[in-house]
Design a protein around this nucleic acid. Sequence first.
DNA 1: CGTGTTTGACCCGCGC
DNA 2: GCGCGGGTCAAACACG
Length: 232
Amino acid sequence: MAAAPQATLNQQPLFEDQEMPTQMGFFSFPPHLTYPQSASCHQSLKGFIIPPSLAADAPSTTNIAETLLLSSATHKQREGTIASDLGGHPLLSLQRSRANLWAWGEVNECLSRKRSGSGEDHLGLSSIKMKKIKARRKVREPRFCFKTMSDVDVLDDGYKWRKYGQKVGKNTQHPRSYYRCTQDNCRVKKRVERLAEDPRMVITTYEGRHAHSPSLDLEESQAPSQLNNFFF
DNA sequence: CGTGTTTGACCCGCGC
DNA sequence: GCGCGGGTCAAACACG
């Protein structure tokens, strides 16, 4: 029997240094991403990073793994990894408002396509609606989320966060927490919630990109080289 | 006293 | 236009 479950996400990432098919640019799965030592986590923590564009393109009933596999051929090679990682357990669907998952880059792309007179609206949206979305999204930062099976809600990703709100969703008894990076002139936000269908799953959504390195507190316990690899 | 959390109020986009 | 719900604000509070 192996040792007690290690409360850490420092394992094989599904996506690492891989260009996302959106305008989000590159990102890396932080190697120092850990849960508090006291936490009792599922013995095989599984992080699923899902870019907004992929989620938006998928039907709401499509699970995350299918979304990733169906939306981009570049993810095809990961199929075996994902399947084995799941251990035969089906992933639950990630219910999201389609509009909420529109990245500003995608909206701009659609608008420029419209202007160029290529005809059909993207996803059947009218230009008025697209402008509405753009107006609402112009302040939106790039976002992505990942899903983790864990008993603890907030993972330690190396940054310092300040909680600024909490809401209880309509169809779930589990509250959704809102966090902001405490660093000055860093507007990155984080949203943490539990999946209604499966409270064991934690959905963490990041919005924006950090304009600084992770908290220096980590440097005392982590190898400096690892600190070069963080979100965006 | 400084920092972080809680929580009710408020704002605003969206669907009807 | 109206109601709902997600997201944010900010005062009060807790804690070291």
